[in-house]
Design a protein around this nucleic acid. Structure first.
Length: 246
DNA sequence: AAAAAGATCAACCGCCAAGCT
DNA sequence: AAGCTTGGCGGTTGATCTTTT
């Protein structure tokens, strides 16, 4: 299930690694420069290929095989909050490589998402929607895109809430991601509901568990403290919300 | 039994940020 | 300040394996 070995025009070998190559790489590991390492080890590989082979298969304590339920829970949880941050997931799962986690997500976990989950959808106009996947009607939330920071707050709040609510019910967490949203920096934030109230109002400061359990997430997004405070959540029911941008 | 379709996963590719010159 | 090098990350590919028809 690997690519057949071959050589490119520069004489660099590509494709599956042989046992002999693995041994040479292991013997030379520790050199501070990945690009120099293959020369010293007598390998016809590029530095990147050596690094990848080492990180995914040859480094000590690397694990392969079935993922445990706990590992899958970690992956699902991080994915719900941060999207495709495979390296962050790998940091939380000793012995697992980002590549393996990524593969496992695409082949096993991704398809387990329920059909009635709430999903975000990027609109052609650049607006942002939150809607039930089965609903053909109005989106739960629809807003003009604002600053990248505003979008990240929106996604962070929604994904965290839906994830936390899933722990007390049978429903599964929804999948949210900020990766697809490029937001013009000069657009004035405008998130409001049909009555013209600021969208953030349902999330007025509340020193509840939401904030304390989400500090790391917000910190990782680089959000200022006052914005984190604004993003706190109280009695938020996703199905009750219908917000439109003006 | 054979062909087709789907699933798996190792490895490659391009982009980006940080560090160095 | 600008350009270059390097390591790291996430998306994608493609060969092989497994299941279905």
């Amino acid at each position: 299930m690997v690519r057949a070995p071959c050589f490119d025009k520069n004489g660099i070998k590509k494709g599956a690694w042989s046992e002999d190559e693995d041994n040479k790489l292991i013997q030379r590991y520790g050199h501070p420069n990945w690009r120099e390492l293959p020369k010293l080890a007598g390998l016809s590989r590029c530095g990147k290929s050596c690094r990848l082979r080492w990180m995914n298969y040859l480094r000590p304590n690397v694990r392969h095989g079935n993922f445990t339920k706990e590992e899958e829970d970690v992956i699902t949880s991080v994915h719900n909050k941060l999207g495709n941050k495979w390296s962050k997931m790998a940091a939380l799962l000793p012995g697992r490589s980002d590549n393996e986690i990524k593969n496992h997500w695409h082949t096993h976990l991704k398809n387990r998402a329920p059909k009635d989950q709430t999903v975000l959808k990027k609109e052609q106009s650049g607006s942002l929607e939150l809607r039930d996947a089965n609903s053909k009607g109005c989106p739960l939330i629809k807003t003009s895109l604002n600053t990248q920071q505003e979008v990240e707050i929106l996604l962070a709040v929604l994904s965290s809430d839906l994830t936390s609510s899933s722990s007390t019910s049978e429903s599964s967490p929804c999948s949210l991601s900020v990766s697809d949203y490029a937001v013009p920096s000069d657009v004035t934030p405008q998130i409001s509901d049909t009555a013209g109230n600021l969208w953030i109002e349902p999330f007025l400061p509340d020193a509840g568990s939401f904030i304390s359990s989400s500090d790391n997430m917000f910190s990782s997004l680089g959000l200022a403290d006052d914005l984190i405070s604004q993003a706190s959540l109280q009695d938020y029911m996703i199905d009750d919300v219908l917000l439109w941008s003006s």
